[in-house]
Write a protein that binds this DNA or RNA. Structure first.
Length: 126
DNA sequence: ATGGTGACTCGCG
DNA sequence: GCGCGAGCCACCA
């Protein structure tokens, strides 16, 4: 598991319930403004808790990451998209049937530089 | 090494 | 607002 994946996972874990961020924003915070697709790739590859006890779909709140427009952007895996919708709604995120989230209200503002540095640095230890 | 594949973004018409 | 095309990045075969 690459350092990049771990950084993504650790950062996503900091998004509180009820808030969301975007692939691009996550990439930006990690110092890679053009790695949005790679962030999506990292989240899509989250495995089961049995296969990876540390970072898996249970421990990483992948559902809190949507596209830059604030919409669930999983086009090809309908089942996964529906799960994301359900999870977000359960967390109290305002989202309509068009999978559109109210960003004004639920956009995560991110971390302070100190906290960010902590993630970037400690990821190297895993 | 190399080309193909996305849970991405932006800019243009 | 919508569809397209073109960058961009990490992976994988």
């Amino acid at each position: 598991m690459s350092n990049f994946y771990i950084q993504v996972y650790r950062l996503v874990q900091r998004i509180p319930a009820g808030k969301v961020s975007s692939y691009g924003r996550i990439a930006n915070m990690l110092g890679r403004p053009n790695a949005a697709r790679a962030v999506g790739y990292a989240l899509s590859s989250l495995s089961s808790a049995k296969k990876n006890p540390i970072y898996n779909s249970q421990t990483v709140p992948w559902q809190r990451v949507v596209n830059s427009q604030g919409r669930i952007s999983i086009r090809h895996r309908v089942k996964t998209a529906e799960k994301q919708y359900k999870l977000l709604k359960e967390e109290g995120v305002g989202i309509n049937l068009n999978y559109q989230i109210n960003l004004e209200k639920h956009l995560w503002q991110g971390l302070h530089l100190i906290e960010l540095d902590d993630i970037l640095h400690s990821a190297a230890d895993d």
